[in-house]
Amino acid sequence: MAATATSLPIAEHAHPDPVHLKRVGLWLFFFSESILFGLFLSARFFLEGIEAEHLDQALGLGITIVLLLSSVTAYTAETAIEHDRRGIAIWGLIGTILLGLVFAAGVGVEWSTAEFSRHEAFGTVFFSMTGLHASHVVSGIVLLVLALIQLLRGRFNSKDHWPISGVVMYWHFVDVVWVFYYPALYLVQGV
């Protein structure tokens, strides 16, 4: 089967939509990260069962609602830029960043007022789980700020907005982690 250029069909290389490829790659990354979070969650039950020390329930519920709200604003920002509504997208991102900062501050308050120490088992799981999660919140805020700066400079439109979609997906993922961590730390022992 000696090949010549003319006698054979010329095919196209597989060119999947680059955004789709990145989306799947990001999901694979989340899949992997969720194992890390899952193992810390398992460590909590392995060491402590459903036992817990006293926590500020009002604060816990408050920051949970704040983080869920930030997901709503992030969704609003992404949907807005998909429809070229730049103004709403900008405010959506700003809102997400602010709510994220409030959440991080709330975790900080919880840390400084906790009545247990990190040297004991419940403290170990509480501080490591919230710390691991908070480190993702902080990196998410940094990424949101980078996206916001570019948005303010006039980049992104309905055809080209993957960085915003990607960052927003990451933010939602961080929220999903908290959806599991919150009841496991605050609620499972009974309020």
Partner: peptide
């Protein structure tokens, strides 16, 4: 029951976020 109920609720919330906010079906 508390553990199972909370797991169910968390799973539902996570599912809602992933399906609608993270556009899982686009995968």
């Amino acid at each position: 029951a508390r553990f199972l109920g909370l797991t169910l609720s968390a799973g539902t919330k996570a599912g809602l976020i992933m399906w609608f906010f993270m556009h899982l079906p686009r995968v």
